[in-house]
């Protein structure tokens, strides 16, 4: 997409921001395990678009821009639960 994203050097890595929780791309086997645990298909996961700043960074880190279809694991701090884990499916931006 021809979005105006700042160039690599000048761009701030959003993952380093205090308010952005830990995002990790799952391997295919991990992803399979997660889907099995919840008894769902990929489509039943919450989604995140590939032009989301976090995904952009993840793509840069993985050295590929074809992360669509992968699942990210998000680990958040929670005042009541300690940590809370959520999953999102990366989808192509519309």
């Amino acid at each position: 997409m021809s979005e105006e994203v700042p160039a690599q050097a000048s761009r701030f890595n959003v993952l380093n921001h205090v308010n952005v929780p830990l995002h990790e791309v799952l391997t295919d086997s991990e992803a399979k395990e997660v889907l099995k645990r919840y008894g769902i298909t990929k489509e039943q996961l919450p989604k995140v678009r590939s032009n989301d700043p976090v995904v952009q960074v993840l793509q840069k880190q993985a050295g590929s821009d074809g992360l669509a279809g992968k699942i990210v694991q998000i680990t958040r701090r929670s005042p009541t639960a300690g940590t809370a884990v959520a999953y999102r499916l990366i989808v192509e931006a519309i």
Binding site: Y38, Q44, R76, A81, A84
Partner: peptide, 12 residues
């Protein structure tokens, strides 16, 4: 539709 909205109710 069976889509997950939260993985644990209210995070905790």
């Amino acid at each position: 539709a069976g889509t997950v909205i939260q993985f644990v109710y209210g995070e905790d």
